[in-house]
Design a binder for these strands. Structure first.
Lengths: 349, 349
DNA sequence: ACCGGTAAATTTACCGGTAAAGTAAATACG
DNA sequence: CGTATTTACTTTACCGGTAAATTTACCGGT
């Protein structure tokens, strides 16, 4: 195995100092066109590849970001974030570490990596605890949250306009004639900003028609991520509140489920209860992931451009890192969602 | 912002040379217990965090791996690989770059990163071209393939025992009395090792009953990844061969679909054709991703422990990098799958 | 008192870049 | 024509570690 080619080798061939070669390669400083040409020629002849570690060590910048993703995730939400962020980052010369937060402690340990000089900043799908990020902010470490933000911490984020999305879906159901519209959320996501905002939009729409009854029509749902065998009895016994409500005389005629994957579980539960979608109950979802399109019937949902969220978040992060965004006020973006009407919602009978 | 603490700072406090501090921190060389204790104490007091870049530059090892994942992927297959690999890697002191192969050219450009001294090795879900990996092998760069391997390149890999899986599913369908069993694969995956092996198992099972009719019952299926609106007319018009076959007099009574996500599209097509699952056609899938459990009816599938594949592949890669595996013969692992019988397959009527 | 051996460090050099300051020759300016 | 400014580099020092060679001190044995 022949030794790696380094700047010095090029310099020697061209007959200049390694510093001149360095400048020539980067097109900085004042180096004659002639020399630049020669250096680049020799570099490609010798197959020169810059040593990233040396570069990073020298200028204290790694051109690397950490992308913290949620776990477990069984739809393609996080995939799409990755697909939005990574290629964009590449196009700007950055690589991305992906950190699935299999356990809460992992989140902190990823964040520790920053301290090792491994990354220049974070893209984060945060867990409930804001402490980690409060610390990052205090230390001036660049980070951008995606999909959900902290209500008690002012920082950069890119999210879907969930309040609007919540409003749109509820409006859609109201327009179909539904009056008893339930809101169902995955029990574990209880108080995430995205759920809270969707609820806000939901209640605003109800309010406009004087139908808001507070928290009463908002119920949690325990979903089964690891349904390997279809022992779907569990799905009913684990959701007594939900079942009681759906079998009551004044059961809701429509359900707005906080996200598609939860909706997929709700579908199973409704079918178990003998309720047809949409004849007996209309169901609306949120996210617009692939999953929603293969459910039977195809799920009406609020589609958010997930890839765009990933890309935008990445863009903001890099801009901040490179000082292209100066204002001290945080960048807070809300991407407008789109109502995607399919076959799981129908006029009330 | 106060300056980072470095080894020299610790050394100065303890009153030794920075080299001694370095050795003490790593527990190498011969440093007195007393000194080691003191160094570690001071280190934690001062909040010392080693500089990863400096370390890497000095010893030519980055403790970083690249994980190349496929794209687009709309189920949780790649997620599970990530979840298998990343935490395991962390536990051995490695971090992982994730590279979605949004375009074929990206694959090469990720591989180039190795040359920048950015990673010690690769975990790869390869595209069809073996050239890249042939080159890696020639250069002695460690890499482990997962899920699919090259038939024309002898290297390390961890895959599902797809021949066995194919056999198991086909046997299951035969045992249910089916005699005309079609094999359906995603048109784009045509000749990947995993599909070929599943076909091999499928044909072996058929052969045992003298039912193998060669390639005739093996048809491609064009699936719709981006079904945003449910214009599922396309799904039929894009799959004329499939439709013709399923509407013929001697249509298959069972379909073995090469993977769950394709099966989800096949479901839609079958429903469009007015064929009930499993009453009219039994359908079997492969992979056992979450998606398969929320389809209606829940899909009978061949479950492979995807996370385990990710973890194993990572383990082998790290072992190779660290020289814990010496034999020159490649490590080639086949993880045994499990038949997961749900409701999409039933005895022939 | 002399020797080899070893524990506990230290010194030197290097990994492969970059920033900052310095220099020599060419060009511009009043 | 002499000085200021550019242009095109070079030199020096440093980023924060590590490997390898070297030093120092102490030990028991003869």
């Amino acid at each position: 195995m022949k030794k790696r080619v380094k700047l010095e080798d090029i310099a020697k061939v061209v007959g200049i100092s390694k510093m001149a070669a360095s400048l020539a390669m980067r097109g900085e400083g004042s180096i004659s066109e002639e020399t630049v040409r020669k250096v680049k020629e020799v570099a490609s002849e010798l197959g020169y590849v810059p040593n990233h570690m040396a570069k990073s060590l020298a200028n204290g910048k790694t051109n690397t970001l950490a992308l913290l993703v949620s776990a477990p995730f069984h739809d393609d939400y996080q995939n799409q974030i990755i697909h939005g962020a990574v290629p964009y980052a590449m196009s700007r010369g950055y690589t991305i570490f992906v950190g699935p937060m299999a356990s809460p402690s992992l989140e902190s340990s990823y964040i520790e990596k920053y301290k090792n000089n491994m990354v220049d900043g974070f893209l984060a799908f945060h867990s409930l605890v804001s402490a980690n990020y409060r610390k990052l902010k205090a230390e001036g470490v660049p980070f951008v949250l995606y999909t959900k933000y902290f209500r008690d911490l002012d920082c950069d984020y890119v999210v879907c306009d969930d309040e609007l999305g919540g409003y749109m879906m509820t409006k859609h159901l109201l327009d179909l004639g539904h009056r008893r519209i339930g809101f169902v959320y995955g029990a574990k996501l209880k108080r995430s900003s995205e759920v809270l905002d969707r609820i806000k939009g939901y209640r605003r729409a109800l309010n406009e028609r004087g139908l808001d009854d507070g928290e009463r029509s908002i119920v949690p749902f325990h979903l089964h991520y690891h349904v390997k065998q279809m022992n779907s009895e569990n799905i009913l016994s684990d959701n007594r509140e939900f079942v009681a409500w759906l079998t009551a005389a004044d059961r809701p005629t429509a359900l707005f489920v906080a996200n598609d994957i939860t909706a997929s579980s709700v579908y199973i539960a409704l079918k178990k209860l003998g309720l047809r979608i949409p004849e007996d109950v209309s169901v609306g979802g949120y996210e617009g992931v692939y999953l929603s399109s293969v459910l039977d019937p195809p799920l009406t949902t609020v589609e958010t451009s997930i890839q765009q969220i990933g890309e935008k978040a990445c863009q903001i992060l890099i801009d901040k890192i490179e000082g292209k965004i100066q204002e001290s006020a945080p960048v807070q973006l809300r991407i407008e969602p789109r109502l995607l009407v399919r076959e799981s919602t129908a006029p009330i009978r």
